[in-house]
Design a protein around this nucleic acid. Structure first.
Lengths: 96, 96
DNA sequence: ATAAATCAGTTTATATTATAAACCAATTTA
DNA sequence: TAAATTGGTTTATAATATAAACTGATTTAT
């Protein structure tokens, strides 16, 4: 009846992050911050969790002299996201 | 970009409960328990929260001698659910 | 009749989570 | 060189989810 919702993805901010990453080559910290409107601290924590799960890769580098944190979704991340989308649909459809 | 997710509905069990109630006249406690596979305690707590928000009505009565707790979604509940469905879609769609 | 088991839930304790506030190191601007 | 800003991270707190323990009534077994 109801599929299980991956708890790592069933979180407003983490889902937003993944939603951004799924449709973009690469997104940096500030881009995610702007798009989600979340605080930096919150984003930092959630990126770390998604990274620990292997759903994204965090690439730290420099843009000129300033630090820059960029993220890319991994194939595991893409798969997990797709699975989550299927799962949540089982809750949204109105059953006959 | 991302619509806010009503935190009362963005919960696996509460969403499942609402998903059941949206497609059925009335559902009793044990029916919900069976469909969700959740523990009674958990269901009790979540029904209470949804009820407190006015999203469902809890009707306590008897079936023969045994107590029976039935639930019906309210129109506020229906609206909130519909809104949640729209909101979560904003996270699931792949943006061009 | 009464003890044991079951039913239909509720209460509460615990563990997990989400979140923002506080912080830090480097860079830029005044 | 002092103050402000940038780009984050750490950590403290509040909120949440969940199951375990409990309650009170009913049924079943002895």
């Amino acid at each position: 009846m109801f599929k299980e919702l991956n708890p790592l993805l069933h979180s407003e901010l983490r889902l937003a992050i993944m939603s951004i990453l799924i449709s973009v080559e690469e997104a940096d910290f500030l881009f995610i911050k702007e798009k989600t409107g979340a605080t930096g601290g919150n984003i930092s924590v959630q990126l770390e969790k998604l990274s620990a799960a292997g759903y994204l890769k965090i690439e730290k580098g420099f843009l000129g002299k300033r630090t820059r944190t960029a993220c890319r979704i991994t194939s595991e991340g893409t798969d997990a996201f797709a699975e989550y989308v299927e799962a949540i649909k089982s809750y949204l459809e109105k059953k006959a």
